[in-house]
Amino acid sequence: MFYIYCPYCGEHREEEEFHNHGQAHIERPADPDSCTDEEWGNYMFFRKSPKGLHHEIWDHVAGCRKFFNVTRDTVTYEIKEVYKMGEQPKVVAE
């Protein structure tokens, strides 16, 4: 049961209000039609599952309905930072 700071609402809310959308910073290829099957497969299917710092997209689905990014330690479940879409993480794995 996480307690997540929503950068749009400006306060912590319970995990039940949020939905995890998986790994962050995956950009849709600009020209999908020119992607090879392998490139497209990597975009669609391949995801990181690091032990330690992980960047994820969360959606404040029961609140303001905004998506944002979370840097979370997958070992301790600590949330190290949240940041808005389009921004870059400050806390990154070594």
């Binding site: 609402c9 306060e11 809310r13 319970e14 039940e16 209000e17 029961a62 609140g63 303001c64």
Partner: peptide, 19 residues
């Protein structure tokens, strides 16, 4: 509801969308 409704954090006028 899972939000904190204590007056110190939920004063008159505050509004939240929640479960």
């Amino acid at each position: 509801t899972i939000v904190d409704v204590h007056p110190s954090v939920f004063p008159v006028g505050k509004v939240v969308s929640t479960t």
